[in-house]
Design a protein around this nucleic acid. Structure first.
Lengths: 95, 95
DNA sequence: AGCTGATGTCAGCATGAACTGATGCTATCA
DNA sequence: TGATAGCATCAGTTCATGCTGACATCAGCT
């Protein structure tokens, strides 16, 4: 969750959702430095959001749909309970 | 998105999803100081994630289901395109 | 009106995260 | 085998943001 808070990482995720890319492509697309991107990609890798696949001297990055789907599911669940409490008028009384 | 990256704010959101609460309750639940919570609630209010309803000298906070549902929808869409690119093997060729 | 308690706002401080430059490793090509 | 390119890691600096204390404000009660 905190991992996707950074705008650069969010841009990386949206780019990878459409296409599997390697670091060079991401550098060209985002305009960020290679080192900077490498750090962000490490964070995304550690969080299990992206997968890596070496290809010669390049490394391809792809988005893991499971991770995004899990987030989407928890958000949907949260929205459902929120709507239920709103409909039921569930509120704790003033102390 | 960036707004929900903070763990305290995430805790506030999950609490409000279940029950409409006022600041005193949130102070008791999270253990954070009142000023700290007030700042976080301001951020959530500015982002349109929560609604406020004054009740005497208390103020009730409730989660806005629309905001969460919008997030859930965009995540689901992202996951769908990610899964499609994975299935189609869509990748940009090495430069 | 005056008092009390709940809440919001502001300025300063501290912690953490992002960005950068330098360096090293690995794979490909001449 | 030397040169080059892609990529990762490390240490240092800068910047953002959360936290805190002090003050202001507002509603309700006596």
């Amino acid at each position: 969750m905190r991992v996707l808070g950074d705008p650069v990482r969010w841009q990386i995720v949206t780019l990878l959702a459409r296409e599997t890319l390697c670091t060079t492509h991401l550098v060209a697309e985002t305009g960020a430095r290679q080192t900077n991107l490498s750090n962000h990609l490490k964070v995304l890798r550690d969080a299990g959001v992206v997968d890596t696949e070496p290809c010669g001297r390049f490394t391809y990055y792809s988005l893991r749909p499971e991770a995004i789907e899990a987030l989407a599911g928890s958000f949907a669940e949260l929205a459902a309970t929120a709507r239920a409490t709103g409909a039921a008028g569930r509120k704790r009384s003033c102390p």
